[in-house]
């Protein structure tokens, strides 16, 4: 499936509504084009996008760590 389809599938998980309180309509409108404002969503987007282009795992981690959580090396 495409990255968009995969993202949509993952966001169906109850954890986003139950733990993070993200409303369903908001979850349905999330895309790769715009920042969702939710680190957990952004982390998922990053993983999906970078693995689609076969980025090494260590670089995926670096990306999330630096860009989402502002943790420098």
């Amino acid at each position: 499936m495409t990255t968009t389809e995969l993202l949509k599938e993952v966001l169906k998980d109850k954890i986003f509504q139950e733990k993070y309180g993200i409303p369903q309509e908001e979850l349905e409108s999330i895309s790769f084009d715009a920042d969702s404002g939710y680190p957990v969503v952004e982390a998922i987007k990053t993983i999906i996008k970078l693995k689609d282009s076969s980025t090494p795992d260590v670089n995926v981690y670096k990306n999330i760590k630096q860009n989402i959580f502002n943790i420098s090396e």
């Binding site: 993952v10 998980d13 680190p39 957990v40 982390a43 989402i68 959580f69 502002n70």
Partner: peptide
């Protein structure tokens, strides 16, 4: 300890759970 480290770990754990459950669901 900066919260961001704790958050990072927690979010990755949750992402892991979400991906795993998505796989099971599909």
């Amino acid at each position: 300890v900066p919260q961001s480290y704790r958050d990072l770990k927690e979010i990755i754990e949750d992402a892991q759970i979400a991906f795993d459950r998505t796989k099971q669901r599909i």
